[in-house]
């Protein structure tokens, strides 16, 4: 294998610029974290809603939840990115469409985050549904027997319990969100993978570049995993097995 190693590359300046390659990667990490975290919040909110809708027993609501899930689950994330970036702006009213295409601040970030959030929400919805269905039927009856409304029953009883049950799959979904944010390179969000490709072409030190970026992704995975473990410990109910 004929390869010229250069571990000092990260401190060197990029071609035709004043910043270093390390600066590029740091910026990339920042966008990756921002995109994944914001997408996660969107996904958690909409996924919980869609998953809960599917368990209401109301045909219209359950159908809406199911449609939501099937729609976002059966098209590749990369294709969804292109749809949001290239197609959706064309469907908007003329004024808004022009604004989105020309003036919207952080266009790539907003598009990628929204897209990743909706994509992930479908997967969370399935987990939430499974979590609610795993609860004994009597819990819903007991809540209703007290006079709680369906909404109160979900917000005070079913969802707090279901979310605790599914914390393990939610953790891996959270870690997936960081990994999946890498797809946003394709619409030009300057996150880690975008920077990796850019630095590889610019410096021609591919292995060092990819190693560094891979380690940064590991770091994201560990942060995500620890954060969820912390939440799990904080929300554990006394007397239940950990």
């Amino acid at each position: 294998m004929n390869y010229h190693w250069n571990w000092h590359i990260f401190a060197q300046q990029v071609q035709g610029g004043s910043e270093t390659y390390a600066d590029w990667l740091a910026a990339g990490l920042g966008w990756t974290l921002a995109c994944a975290l914001c997408a996660w919040l969107i996904a958690l909110a909409l996924g919980t809603l869609a998953g809960a809708l599917r368990t209401t027993g109301n045909r219209v609501l359950a159908g809406a939840g199911a449609t939501w899930v099937e729609l976002f689950r059966n098209v590749p994330l990369l294709v969804q990115m292109f749809l949001w970036f290239f197609v959706v702006p064309e469907l908007l009213p003329r004024e808004l469409s022009l604004w989105v295409k020309q003036d919207m601040p952080a266009k790539e970030f907003v598009t990628a985050t929204l897209c990743l959030g909706l994509f992930t929400s479908a997967r969370i919805a399935e987990q939430v549904r499974a979590g609610i269905q795993a609860l004994p039927r009597g819990q819903r009856e007991a809540a209703l027997a007290l006079g709680l409304t369906t909404l109160q029953c979900y917000s005070h009883i079913l969802l707090p319990r279901a979310l605790r049950i599914i914390i393990a799959p939610l953790t891996s979904e959270f870690m997936n969100t960081f990994k999946n944010s890498s797809v946003a390179f394709a619409i030009g969000l300057m996150e880690l993978t975008f920077q990796a490709r850019q630095m590889q072409e610019d410096s021609e030190q591919g292995i060092e570049t990819y190693l560094a970026v891979t380690l940064l992704y590991f770091l994201c995975a560990i942060i995500a995993n620890r954060a969820m473990a912390l939440i799990e410990a904080r929300t554990r109910v006394p007397g239940t097995p950990g």
Binding site: S182, T193, T214
Partner: peptide, 15 residues
């Protein structure tokens, strides 16, 4: 399982 697939694709294409 910890690395994004895109990075794995790039890795192999390089290596």
């Amino acid at each position: 399982r910890a690395i994004p697939l895109v990075m794995v694709i790039l890795w192999f294409f390089l290596v």
